[in-house]
Design a protein around this nucleic acid. Structure first.
Lengths: 349, 349
DNA sequence: GTTTAGCACTTAACCCTATCGAGTGCTAAA
DNA sequence: TTTAGCACTCGATAGGGTTAAGTGCTAAAC
């Protein structure tokens, strides 16, 4: 356990390091403290902090920088979540204020705003209910052999997919299949639908259609699209602005990672607390040491019965935490509000 | 005009510089030439090339590097378009071989493949006919106040958009509007549809609907989505792999550019030849000096009556042109073939 | 018992200099 | 016309000295 004075000193070290960017020494530090002590005293206390693994030296006579553990302690105990500026709030409200036609547009745009605000890389995930259910499937002929397949889920999402039928296709049989699908699967969670699609459904379809593969592919595709966790990334390239240690290997690894959606998805899932804001620092993020100099701030946002979504920011471990966390928090609230409005307006039942 | 020997020397300079990456001097160069001359002779010839502005020195006693003009000359006259390896061809065919459900998926995936193959940043644009026409618009009620709007164009594209009606909405009036839209606009080019949407259409809609704004917004949105030139980017982060001059300002500028679709769009349009492969080097790309160390290779691909699309690769000016051009050329052919198959299969008329 | 002044010590960063190597242009001979 | 030879240029590298910012420790002051 640290004394109150040690707390203040650690706090000052993190603040100074994250704002100035240079290792901080005892003399400068002493000037910035809320109480008056000599550099020598500060040095003694810094010794204690170092013994506790909260701060590090880069070489024997260098100033100190916070360790992962130090950041952790700072975020957990020493952070005064400073309210964000009115200006930032206005920017958020303005950016979310324009009218959108689709949830996806809001979420996608959100990633861009959030990355602009923080100047880091931002991720946004659509709100998802725990188990979305199928509420209807249709095929609407558009003439000229074209058909559009429409799948509606009980959270109001609609997925559609156009395709063209072979010349001499039995459209009556197709509509019979659609009826069967609706009879059998309406009200089922999409996960279960996916399972049955590999199980008993193919047999049933084949009773109506000779070549069932095409239809099954289509249906599988549209269902998996509806149940996919869809997310967006903003400001990918910001990762390079603070080219930390100029660690080219690490940057390479991160690049690859950012291009593969599935990996980001698991990363976010693994690092998101069920509720509230979550900060993961350096090695806490994943086993991959490419993240050692980064921090990931995730926050879930709640849109009532429409489910929970996630927003996240990936920036340098050396970041102004209180500002960034303040921004993420404000953003998540505004986004939740906006989405609630949107759902109420467009998907009211 | 250059002598044949000067041609060979320039060719060797570009080849060596693009493969080794270091300025090339007379001694090494003499060893790599297909004829035997002394370094002194090479030096004399290099003097001529320099007088012609084809090669540059970085300082008075450095080796030479090709200038933009030198690259240009090389690409125009000295390139022997080396056939791509069987392996590369296989990779392309395999990647395009998997089954896709939508044109967009093919195009999007193509950007990824092309960037992987070249290890640069790749862009792909959907094939577009010169003037796409509206071939039908529908509203399909899905129950529970939900409606899906569907717009079909004569190139077989289908855009759809779900929305929810206010509680007590006159659905008959809405269908009347749809009938009116179809009567008035079917067969018109989308560009003209967009114009009339700002002109006489609103008045007509208002004859049926009290609050026409919602509908007009929706329709405008879906039409502009259908007529938007949609493109995809692969390997954005590859731009940083060859962190050229470590020119942080230039990289910043490029970053911003890559995040703004409209700018890329105009860039590609401006740099694409009507047919065949086009290479733009350094300052040729745009007025922006951020591009000075880059080259942009664009190629249009032709899918018969379904229109023309574009693929492009943005890499360092110091690139192995024959390989990259070979790859782009092969890719464009394979992509055209794949798309033709796809259109024939799914959109056969 | 803390705190602090003082001091010896460490290290990165900077600048200056010397050296080396790869390159050049020029001249004169082949 | 080509080439050998040579003086010259310049970036890159390594070594040495100095400086500034930092440290830990000790002993005196509070």
């Amino acid at each position: 356990m640290l004394t109150q004075r040690q707390d203040k000193i650690l706090q000052a070290i993190v603040r100074q390091y994250t704002s100035v960017g240079q290792p901080v020494g005892s003399k400068h530090l002493a000037e910035d403290l809320p109480f008056k002590v000599s550099p020598a005293t500060v040095r003694n206390e810094m010794g204690v902090l170092e013994d506790n693994g909260l701060i590090l030296k880069q070489h024997s006579s260098s100033g100190r920088i916070p360790s992962t553990k130090g950041y952790r302690y700072y975020v957990d105990h020493l952070l005064d979540t400073e309210a964000i500026t009115n200006n930032d709030l206005l920017v958020i409200q303005n950016s979310l204020g324009t009218s959108f036609q689709k949830i996806d547009e809001i979420i996608s745009h959100s990633a861009d705003i959030l990355s602009d605000l923080t100047s880091y890389t931002a991720f946004t995930l659509k709100p998802e209910q725990a188990d979305v259910r199928l509420s209807g499937f249709r095929l609407v002929p558009l003439g000229n052999q074209k058909v559009i397949a429409i799948l509606v889920t009980d959270n109001g999402d609609v997925e559609s997919q156009a395709f063209t039928l072979p010349q001499d296709f039995d459209t009556d049989a197709l509509q019979a299949v659609v009826r069967m699908i609706n009879d059998q699967l309406t009200g089922e969670p999409l996960t279960k639908v996916m399972n049955r699609l590999k199980d008993d459904i193919p047999l049933q379809v084949m009773q109506y259609l000779q070549s069932a593969d095409g239809f099954l592919d289509l249906f599988d595709h549209i269902v998996s699209r509806a149940s996919r966790e869809q997310f967006f990334i903003g400001g990918r390239l910001n990762l390079f602005n603070f080219s930390n240690t100029y660690n080219s290997v690490g940057v390479q690894t991160l690049s690859r990672l950012l291009e593969h959606n599935d990996q980001i998805s698991t990363l976010l899932d693994a690092n998101t607390a069920n509720d509230g804001i979550n900060v993961k620092i350096g090695s806490e993020i994943s086993g991959n040491e490419a993240f050692d100099d980064y921090s990931l701030i995730t926050a879930s946002y709640n849109v009532d019965q429409y489910g929970k979504g996630i927003i996240a920011v990936l920036g340098p471990a050396k970041m102004p935490y209180s500002r960034t966390i303040g921004l993420v928090d404000a953003f998540r609230q505004q986004l939740a509000k906006k989405l609630l409005d949107f759902y109420r307006h467009y998907y009211s039942s």
